[in-house]
């Protein structure tokens, strides 16, 4: 709209509305139709086991869902996973960015290698970790533990959510590294030297100069990662199937279970709407904290 009036005010007198209409309507269809259908399904009692017995139930799906402890467990699991991976991947990413900012022999190859996990498919990554690294009998970690005389950790039964968090962090830390490395490279060299002359070194230099410089980029990484992390699914399916119990059942996994294991389309749609709401809440808080950081 604003653009439209602007072009009327300054540019040639061409009506841009009709020109933009196809793109805009496609976008609207793209977003609104699935959302509307999900909302519609979420008000139905609709089970694939009894496809003929579809009936309108209003908000009772929601009431039922809210009373289901599985929902709250899954929301807590989702937030812990997202939060944990965000913190860990940004911390690791910042550390690696600072390390790789220095030039050393083989730095360019090392940079390439550090980014590699990002290009491994989630299912493959999860399987590698599950069978080759974290396996309590055949895994590399178990081997190390045994050679140190320690009892091997059965990762997916004793620390299920943490294990998945580790895998996902392994996948996303390279992304953070990549973005933060680019950001750190734009740090003015004279500014670093001025700080050195002022007596900043090591940690003080990092805390007073590098970190403030990276704040903006960290915000961007957090936002992008949060969007993708909220929908983590393949890693859970391949490793724990949401278990043991519901220890690793996140909201997306709960929706999957409801729809495709319990064949309950109505309830799954309700879960989908919950996921949309959750994503918006997370997004709201993220954007608010980040924009506050950027202003100061």
């Amino acid at each position: 709209m604003a653009k439209d009036t602007q072009s009327k005010a300054r540019g040639p007198a061409v009506r841009t509305g009709p020109l933009m209409a196809p793109a805009v309507s496609l976008l609207v269809l793209w977003m609104i139709v699935p959302l509307a259908m999900t909302i519609y399904f979420s008000t139905l009692r609709y089970s694939l086991l009894q496809p003929d017995a579809v009936s309108f139930v209003g908000i009772s799906n929601y009431i039922f869902f809210f009373q289901d402890p599985a929902l709250w467990t899954s929301i807590v699991n989702t937030l812990s996973l997202v939060g944990g991976v965000l913190v860990a991947s940004i911390a690791i990413g910042t550390l690696l960015a600072v390390v790789f900012y220095e030039t050393f022999p083989g730095a360019s190859i090392a940079r390439l290698l550090v980014v590699a996990p990002f290009f491994v498919m989630p299912t493959v990554a999860a399987l590698i970790w599950k069978n080759l690294l974290m396996h309590p009998v055949n895994g590399l970690f178990a081997f190390f533990a045994r050679s140190l005389g320690l009892p091997p950790v059965d990762w997916f039964s004793s620390l299920p959510l943490t294990s998945i968090g580790i895998i996902v962090t392994w996948q996303w830390a390279p992304f953070a590294t990549l973005i933060l490395l680019t950001a750190i490279q734009s740090l003015d060299r004279e500014q670093l030297e001025a700080a050195r002359m002022d007596g900043a070194r090591g940690l003080t230099l990092f805390y007073h100069i590098t970190l403030p410089h990276l704040a903006r980029a960290i915000g961007v990484v957090a936002m992008i990662e949060a969007i993708f992390l909220l929908s983590i699914f393949a890693e859970i399916l391949v490793t724990t199937n949401g278990g043991p119990g519901s220890a690793t059942t996140t909201l997306p996994y709960l929706i999957y279970k409801t729809a495709l294991l319990d064949f309950n389309v109505g309830m799954a749609s309700t879960g989908g709407i919950m996921a949309v709401v959750l994503a918006n809440i997370v997004g709201f808080f993220l954007i608010r904290t980040i924009s506050r950081n950027l202003d100061s």
Partner: peptide, 19 residues
């Protein structure tokens, strides 16, 4: 170390800390 020499430097680009 630079800060222990008791010197101060003014850089061409000023090198002020933007934050």
């Amino acid at each position: 170390a630079p800060d222990r020499r008791g010197l101060a430097m003014v850089f061409q680009s000023y090198a002020l800390y933007p934050h």
